[in-house]
Nucleic acid binder design. Sequence first.
DNA 1: TTGGGTGCAAAGGCTTTGCATGTGA
DNA 2: TCACATGCAAAGCCTTTGCACCCAA
Lengths: 149, 149
Amino acid sequence: MPDNQDMFKKLLKKNGLKVTTQRVAILEVLSSRPGKHLTAEEIYDFVKKKYPDIGLATVYRTIQVLSDLNLIDKLNLDDGYVRYEIGKKDNEDNGHHHHHLICLDCGSIFSFQDDLLEALEEHIEETLGFKVVDHEVKLYGHCKKCLEK
Amino acid sequence: MPDNQDMFKKLLKKNGLKVTTQRVAILEVLSSRPGKHLTAEEIYDFVKKKYPDIGLATVYRTIQVLSDLNLIDKLNLDDGYVRYEIGKKDNEDNGHHHHHLICLDCGSIFSFQDDLLEALEEHIEETLGFKVVDHEVKLYGHCKKCLEK
DNA sequence: TTGGGTGCAAAGGCTTTGCATGTGA
DNA sequence: TCACATGCAAAGCCTTTGCACCCAA
């Protein structure tokens, strides 16, 4: 999709990064698999199909930079891999991320948005004087499919 | 504290584990520092003061087992270390863990309990058919002390 | 031109594992 | 007795880093 390519190029420039084939390719891979939570290795494999010369180190360096700029979201499931997905709102960062449902049976990951935590965060600020600016919520359980089996 | 020692011995037996000096020592270290979130290396260093012959591998194996049995809680702050703390209710496991406040400035960790998520979990179960059995909540922000500076 | 970006390989650093020995039940 | 637990060292494994080369601006 050339439209996406243009968007990514602008996104990179806007954040003071040089536009390189590798960076655009990585963003394309992530954006073509929304909510897929890919590991660095998986991103590497996908990018290599179109751009065989890319190195794994470049993938690591790129997702590092993109993550620091909040252009992509990090997800750690404690399975030894850090996963990444493209932010729902791309460059627009409200400081709050969406939450994840993780199936303990099949490993599927579902994302959802909920503002229920805002009340909790206000409560914490009032009682403890702790100013919450970001949160990470993971809910573990059994997904519909696995429950039906 | 001999009382704690006895308690830990019973706890280990109850869970089908052999009672060893190393395991009791590790539980003692964790229980004497509640809410401290120690890394394996830190646990190792503390235990070595009283029991110099212990090996780091034993610490790793022990916290693994204790964590699997929900006798201790795992906390991952994405800083390269996995941390452990003794469960507030020891062997009594209701499947839900407490939450953490993490200060982005000084790195302090505060724990708190809140049942606000239950409404959210019910909502998810009704709308998505996903049965939540556990959750992990991390709130990032600025603690009172750092705000005052 | 030139400083940031990339590829490759080596190094890092936390954690796990193999194996012989030790020990709790 | 004997299956489980431990210590030590080596191996694993994901990720980072050094360095020379390359290329977008």
